[in-house]
Structure formats: C-alpha cells, structure tokens
C-alpha cells in the first residue's frame, strides 16, 4: 500500500502532492493502488488504519516547499499508512518537526555555540556552529542533491524501494564521504530523534495526532495517578492503555 501511494505521489508537483497525501488516502489512493499492486491492496484494505480527516491545510513555519516535500516524503516512508497508524503526514510528524525547528529548539536553545569549532568523533556529540534549524535544512539539501546524483531524482520522487535503500544507506553512513556533509550523522543525530519525538510526544506539539502512537503502544498517558493501579494492575493489562489522554484532554 505504502509503495503504491508513494509511487503515485511522486508524479505530482509539491503542493498538489501534499494535498494528495492529506486528503487522498481514500479515493485517489485506491485508484492509484488499483493500477499497481491491486492484489496486495485488496487484501490490506479492510484492516488499514482509517484515514484521519486530515488537518486543515497546514501552514509550515520553517519549511519551504522543497524542504516540506523532502520531510513529508521521509515521514510518509518511515511511518506508512498501514493497519497500525495513518501515514506520517496525517500523524502530524512533519508539522511537529517544522514547529520544533521554528521554535526555541531550532534556534539553538540550550546549545553551546561558542568557538573554536573543531570537528570531533561521533562520541563528542554535535560540534558544528549551525543552529538545529540551519543544520536540518542543510541536511535536506544534501539529501536531495545526493539522491539526484546517485539515484536520478530528489528523495520525494524516488519509488518506495529506492527510498528504503537510500534511508538504510545514509543511516549506516554509507553515503558519507570525507570532507563532505555527513548524512549519516544528520539522519541519526538530528532527523531520527525528531522523528521518534514526533511520534511519541504529547500531541500538543503537533505530532502523535489523535494520540495514535500512544494507543499503538498501550501507553495510557495522563493524568498518570497510579497510587492504586500500581497494585491493582501489577502484572495485568491496564484498562486505559488504549484510551490514553493527553494534555489537551485536560484543557
């Protein structure tokens, strides 16, 4: 299903494609999928996660259109719409990342940015002079340039197999060249943590929409006052595990 959605999407221009990803899980996806991997879809359909109604058109605060394309394609690939969750964009993962980069974190909050700057080992942690937002965007550019050069298209335009091998390769540093921007470090130290934070943080930050990842885990969320449950549900399933509550539920 994921493969079909992605390869269909790759033909569409930037904004059209985002619209597609948000609204088209129904008809367009079916139409697309039918032509390509019909058998698989027919089997998968009944159990596929119902598509979220979709957010009102998202305005990104940090991403430009190419960056949005790249990030949306990444989160859609890494969090495909399946029987467990909606696709990554519908889960709010791109919005989460955008909001983090537009806010204090993206602008270097709690990050020591004084020189001298010295390259270091991975174990030395982040050693560049860029803010996380600048670093993130450099990574999107480097990823697309590398995809273009090695695979003939920017990341968002690759088919699902190519996306998968691209991510496997960058995450194991196989595209890293001495003296060049390290996509491995970028993916593992910046993108991937933001991706998991987008999935599992409180939905108030824009990701984990509808607490979908908390329900997936069986994490009951708030208020987490377990003075009694600690004993009652020791060793037993917790009744609220799949009906979590988040901060907004207490607003």
């Amino acid at each position: 299903m994921n493969a079909a959605t992605d390869s269909c999407a790759s033909g569409l221009p930037g904004t059209g494609r985002r619209l597609f990803l948000r609204q088209a899980a129904g008809a367009a996806a079916l139409w697309c999928a039918a032509g390509e991997v019909a058998g698989q879809v027919a089997q998968d359909l009944p159990t596929i996660y119902p598509s979220a109604p979709g957010p009102a058109d998202t305005v990104y605060l940090s991403f430009g259109p190419e960056e949005a394309d790249c990030v949306e394609a990444m989160v859609e690939h890494m969090c495909p719409r399946d029987e467990l969750t909606p696709g990554g964009v519908d889960c709010g993962l791109a919005v989460f990342i955008d909001r983090e980069l537009a806010g204090a974190y993206g602008h270097g909050d709690r990050l020591y940015l004084r020189g001298p700057f010295r390259p270091g080992l991975p174990e030395d942690g982040y050693q560049l002079s860029m803010t996380p937002a600048q670093y993130f965007k450099s990574g999107c550019r480097a990823l697309d340039q590398n995809c273009q050069r090695r695979l003939g298209a920017v990341f968002a335009r690759l088919d699902a197999n190519a996306k998968e091998s691209c991510l496997l390769e960058i995450s194991t540093n196989r595209w890293d060249e001495t003296g060049e921007f390290s996509l491995g470090a970028w993916f593992n130290e910046l993108f991937y943590p933001l991706f998991t934070q987008a999935c599992f943080s409180d939905p108030v930050y824009g990701g984990n929409r509808d607490k979908v990842f908390w329900r997936l885990l069986g994490y009951p969320g708030l208020p987490a006052t377990y003075g009694r449950d600690m004993v009652t549900y020791r060793g037993r399933p917790h009744p609220a595990a799949h009906t979590p509550r988040s901060m907004q539920d207490f607003a």
């Binding site: 709690r110 990050l111 943080s201 409180d202 708030l222 901060m247 207490f250």
Partner: peptide
C-alpha cells in the same frame, strides 16, 4: 502542575529544568 508537568518532551528530552548549556 498537571497537565504540563507530565510533558516528556519538555522536561526529559529538552531538559527544561537543567543547567543551560548555552
């Protein structure tokens, strides 16, 4: 205070109560 005290991203991941490395 509830609910904000239970914010993992803010306090545990971003270290909202810790020494400011900047």
């Amino acid at each position: 205070r509830l609910p904000t005290q239970r914010d993992e991203l803010r306090w545990a991941v971003r270290g909202g109560l810790m020494q400011d490395a900047a």
